[in-house]
């Protein structure tokens, strides 16, 4: 047990180290972009956050399907961890995107496809976490979280295409698609770094959820019995 947590922590520390190295390359080694200049360096933390937030939500979806299917509490803990970490990265992503928009277009918000989809996505999954926090019964909480996660995740591609059509008359993204090798390295390093950190945080959050469940079951057998009596009456 201790060994496994130690393993995940090593992963997290490795991620932190990589993040420092990758950011160093991104900030000081990679060349300034032709049109966007220094501002483009935001990309080295922005794009990895976006990728990994999406990975977290996808993982949450997969965990939710497994959890719904086999009903084991540990999958519920993992789903919650993945959603919460995904939401944190998603929130950071929005702030970075907003700064990016201000620096390049002069406005704090642009109804760009990806930015808008990210905002809707954050609200979708924050709703799932809110729903979860209101359910007292642990089995029901797990089932409802899984159901709501699946419903929310299926919506993401729909929102994306919808926003794309919605603003189809406007310009397309100005994110550079052609990137030089010196730009790819920090991007990849930071993506791996944030992935490792996310795994570490999800493991921590899942552990917290398991501890909570354990505590609930130790503390409140009386409440459960009382609840059964009311249902029978």
């Amino acid at each position: 047990m201790t060994r496994r947590i130690f393993g995940v922590r090593t992963l997290g520390l490795l991620g932190l180290g990589l993040l420092l190295v990758g950011s160093y390359f991104g900030l000081f080694v990679a060349p300034a972009e032709r049109y966007m200049g220094q501002v483009q360096r935001i990309m080295y933390v922005h794009v990895p956050c976006a990728w990994i937030a999406m990975v977290c939500y996808t993982a949450a979806f997969v965990f939710a399907v497994i959890g719904l299917w086999n009903g084991k509490p540990r999958w519920d803990a993992r789903t919650t961890g993945a959603i919460e970490v995904g939401a944190v990265l998603n929130a950071l992503l929005l702030v970075q995107g907003s700064i990016w928009a201000r620096a390049t277009w002069g406005v704090w918000w642009d109804w760009d496809v990806r930015l808008t989809t990210s905002l809707v996505m954050l609200l979708l999954f924050a709703g799932v976490l809110a729903l979860r926090s209101f359910v007292d019964d642990s089995d029901r909480r797990a089932t409802w979280t899984a159901v709501a996660t699946i419903v929310a995740f299926v919506d993401v591609p729909l929102v994306y295409f919808c926003v794309r059509w919605w603003r189809s008359l406007h310009q397309t993204q100005s994110t550079p698609e052609t990137v030089s090798p010196a730009m790819v390295l920090p991007l990849r390093l930071n993506a791996i770094a944030i992935l490792l950190i996310a795994i570490w945080l999800i493991a921590q959050r899942a552990k917290l959820e398991r501890e909570r469940l354990r505590k609930e079951q130790v503390d409140e057998p009386a409440r459960v019995t009382a609840g059964l009596e009311v249902t029978d009456a």
């Binding site: 609200l123 979708l124 709703g127 729903l131 209101f134 419903v151 929310a152 919506d155 729909l158 919808c162």
Partner: peptide, 18 residues
């Protein structure tokens, strides 16, 4: 749930953006 009046729009509104 106790807070149904808040929760339903909170869950539904982002979902029905399309």
């Amino acid at each position: 749930l106790r807070s149904q009046d808040v929760l339903l729009p909170l869950l539904l509104f982002p979902l029905v953006v399309p």
